[in-house]
Amino acid sequence: MAEDAYIASIAAGAFFLIASVRLIRLHRRTRERPELLLGLFFALSAVYYLGFNAPSLFRFGEWPAQIELVVEWAYVLGVLPYLLFIRLVFRPNAAWASWSVGTCSALLLLSTLMLTAGGTVEYSLADPWFCFQWAGYTAPCLWLAWEAMLYRQNVTKRARIGLCPPIVANRYLLIGLFGIFQVLACLADLSIANEIGNKMTVSLFTDALLGGAEIASVAVLWLAFFPPLFYTRWITRRAVILPTPMDG
């Protein structure tokens, strides 16, 4: 995988960088934590995506091992604010959510520590620490998708009586889809680890799955964070808002 420049991954990295700048600037204005947490996640993900693909993009072989470790840790550390974001937004008062964040974070940190203890990053399904790490960063994507889709059911009802703008209600769907596409990208990671572990070249299917998931992720995030006017109008036009009986 390191030898191929994935245009989709580079595009995703660039978009994550733009989204992170926007979210961190939003945090400086509002002083609220959700935008900061999500901004940090996107910033560190951008470091990973761009850092991982830079050698192929600029054709300079490979990063020194230390840089590879920094890039790997950037992604892992980025998942921690991502987990906190999900808990803060969807389950602020649930004890089980705090435990889940703690367990997932511990799993990620420990597995990454063990994976990188030798000074290099190995991707192999034969290594149980790789599997633990994979579970640690896939679970938050699945959790986000689940929560956003669950909330979407109620928010659609609220939009019907005018309590939530239709474009905001639609954002739950987009964020839920982002979670699903990220899970698909994580599945592609598994496939890559399997192929590399068996000394095979990365298959066309895995390439397409990863590329497709990344492009789809960028598309839904673009609609969620930078909704173009035509999209906002389209969603608003399609929305069904109940009339007020008393007004009639």
Binding site: P165, R171, I175, P227
Partner: peptide, 12 residues
């Protein structure tokens, strides 16, 4: 509330 947060995230 999640609605307020999602509203801010999209700048609307």
């Amino acid at each position: 509330s999640p609605d307020e947060i999602f509203k801010r995230l999209g700048g609307s």
